[in-house]
Design a protein around this nucleic acid. Structure first.
Length: 202
DNA sequence: GCGACAG
DNA sequence: ATCTTGTCGC
């Protein structure tokens, strides 16, 4: 299914203006029997939080590397749809095209919602890359089968780099640019960072 | 057969 | 993802 849907993913520069950026993240609750997702809508210019949404549902799929979307996408999609408005861009705490079959969670969610999405993961799923400088903005191409599938990006000085890739309806360059724009002095993009915080509160 | 492996 | 103790840097 992923191999087939990967052919429907569109990678190109953002088509319209980005006035709002949303971030989504998941966490477990109820002793690991339920999955909780939070979506945070922010003003793209100031990163001020405009709205938040939270949902909970039973876990219906185990965590299997490469199949994360079958576990988290339903919750992420529900949370984003619960926001008062559709964002112009959505940041996901997972891979987009930087996936063995080119269809990570960010691509899956973007494809389903027909929304521009970016994959900004804290660690690597697949691909190889060379070393990169340790200053904010330093990067290296993430390669798989002789193709560039994403970038390893230092989002602030001296921190572990993040793995950025296009999810859907964005280019890798736009993904990198918006990731840096959303970071504002912290390692994780603000919208995703706040969603992560919400998901963890009791 | 062994190691790697988003969250 | 979650849990856990100590350490490092601003």
């Amino acid at each position: 299914m992923q191999k087939e849907l990967a052919g429907q993913v569109i990678v190109r520069p953002l088509a319209g203006p980005v006035r709002t950026v949303a971030g989504a993240d998941c966490g477990l609750c109820a002793g690991g029997t339920k999955i909780r997702a939070a979506a945070v809508l922010c003003d793209a210019e100031s990163m001020v939080v405009l709205a938040t949404a939270k949902v909970e549902m039973p876990c219906r799929f185990p965590y299997v590397p490469g199949l994360l979307s079958f576990r988290e996408a339903p919750a992420v999609i529900a949370a984003v749809e619960k926001l008062p408005a559709r964002p112009d861009l959505l940041m996901c705490d997972a891979q987009g095209l930087a996936h063995p079959r080119g269809f990570g969670l960010a691509s899956h969610v973007g494809w389903w919602l027909n929304l521009p999405t970016i994959g900004a993961a804290k660690s690597r799923l697949c691909g190889l890359h060379g070393s990169l400088g340790r200053r904010k903005g330093d990067r290296a191409d993430l390669m798989l089968d002789d193709k560039c599938i994403g970038a390893v990006l230092r989002t602030r000085d001296n921190v572990k780099p993040m793995f950025i890739s296009a999810g859907h309806l964005v280019s890798l360059d736009d993904a990198i640019e918006w990731t840096l724009k959303c970071c504002r002095g912290v390692r994780m993009p603000q919208p995703t960072r706040i969603a992560d915080k919400i998901v963890k509160e009791p």
